[in-house]
Every structure is written in structure tokens, then in C-alpha cells.
Amino acid sequence: MLSSSGWSLRTPTVLTRFVVFTALSLALMVLDHRGQHLAKIRAGLSVVFYPIEVAATLPARAVESFLNFVGGNEALQQKYDKLASRQPLLEAKLERYDALVAQNTHLRKLLGSAALVADRAVVAKILQVSEEPFTRKIVIARGSLDGVHNGQPVIDNHGIMGQVTEVDPEQSRVTLITDPGHAIPVEDTRNGLRAIVFGTGAESSVAVRYLAAPTDIKVGDLLVSSGIGGTFPFGYPVARVTRIVNNPNEPFLNIHARPVAHLEYNKEVLLIWPTKITPGRTLPPASAPGPQPTPLNGVRAIPDTTRRPPAARAPARPPAAAADSSAGADHGH
């Protein structure tokens, strides 16, 4: 900080400033990477710079509302017709779904296993898509004021999109499953094989890593969330296997999959609040081992799918077939 010309304290030289700010950046990065020390600061800063984000989304919103205005009635009518035609179909599906959920819950109770089931969902508008290369994140218009919390699963009507990783009062940031820093435990619907799906940074490709050569996985297999780890509920579609490369020089198979959710097309996403279904008091006493906590809303459950023996998994899996008979009975009224 002292100038060498020897007459006074001067403002620091450019080099000194450079060194100071570089050190500051490095310190910030280390703090931000190792733990959540800076979460509060980051949240505060994003509130301060929220106007910039709003300004950035203004043109797109203006164009949208202009198109709505110009397209007006016809477009709306078309949209309405389309939605109206889908409505009975979805209702029919939903009827069956209710029956399935009831039966699934019943079976899980019998098994004495806890599972995450989404019981509350809220639609959130996508405000902004990360424009930085390599990261796959979106900003949605729901925040802590709406009850959004860190680690919350985000889905669309096709499958899992990602999870909330940063919550502000009015908005939150969602890390998509294609982000290079994201991983999600999955299960192959064909044979129950457990695996982990990693994001790669590419927009429509994820990688299934750490599976060695003789593993039974095929192109076209649907991978659904396994519920292991407790962040994502069980059974939501994640990705479909598109390519398997077996390079003998590498220890693991090189498996590519395509996310099922429409990560690049949606304007709206669904936030879900998984609830832990635990064996309740109404159980037959024989099948209720251990303490019986009451179901809590919004509590992160750690499902015991890991400890479930493969034999026990079997009855939980094909209730769809068995449900047909009971679905009729349940909805006879």
C-alpha cells in the first residue's frame, strides 16, 4: 500500500488492488463451495438485484402478452377446446389413480415401510433460465413465502425436472437433473436395478454412471426415482436409456439417457411437497414394528427402500395389475 516514491501514502496501485480482489474472490469461492456460509449473503444480494432479473424477463413477457392480445379469442378458443377434450380423459385416469394410491398406501402399511408420497403440489412459473453455459438451472416464481424449501423436488407433467437449491422470498432457483452438479438415485422399472443418474451439462442428455459391464440394462429402459436418499419421492419418471457403450478399456459402462421431463420447453413447473407415509395406528399389530411416528407435513423422510429385501419389493411393484379389479370396486358408487 505504501508507494515507493517515498513522499506519502497513496491510493493502492492497480497491482495491489488486483491481488486483493483476487484473494477476495478465491476466499468467496472456497466459502461458497464448502458449505452454506454464504447462503444468507447470496439471498440478500439476489433480493437487491431482483430488479435486474425482472427487467431481463420484461421483453419476453411483453411479447407474450402482446401475442395473447393479438391472437386473442381464436387462440384462446383453440386452447380451451384442446384442454376441454383432454379433461374427461384425465379425469378417468385420475379415478384409477386414486384407487391405486389407496391400495399402494395400504400395501406399504402392510409392509411397514415408509415412503414419500406427494400430497401437495403448486404450479410455479419459470422466470428465467440460466444463460450461463454448463449450468442447467431455472428460476421459478415461488419462494419461501410460498413454503418452498431447499431440496424440494420439482416436476412437470412428464417427470422429474430437478430440485430447489436456493430459496429467496419471492423466487427460487432450481437445479435441473441435467446440471453437471446434480445426481439422482433411480431404479430401472424393468428389473428394479438401482443406479444413479448424473447431469452432464448437455440439455437433453444425462449419464448413468458406475454400472459395470454385465449389468442388465437396455436401451429404452425407463428409469424412475427410487426414493433412496429422501429428496425425491419414489416412482417419478426421470430418464429413458438411449445409448449404451461398452468400452472394454473403461471400468464402467458408458450409458446415456434422455430426461423424460420436458426441461427445455415448459413455461410452468410443479413444486411438490412430499409427505412421509408411515405405518399408522390402524395397522394390524403384527406388521407394525418399531415406533409409529405420526405423518408430518413437509418433513424430509428417509425411506427405508434400501433396507427392503428384494422379496418384499415384489408385492409393492405390480399393484397396477391387481388394482384393476379393486378399482372397479372402490369406485362402484
Binding site: F18, S25, S46, E53, S130, K137
Partner: peptide
């Protein structure tokens, strides 16, 4: 902050 990237990443580059 706007990108949601690691805090200090762009700061270092811009410095």
C-alpha cells in the same frame, strides 16, 4: 448472483 454460479467465479474473471 444473477447466474446462480459459485460466488466469486465471475468476480475473479472480471477482476
Amino acid at each position: 448472483v444473477l447466474y446462480g454460479s459459485l460466488l466469486g467465479e465471475q468476480a475473479l474473471a472480471k477482476t
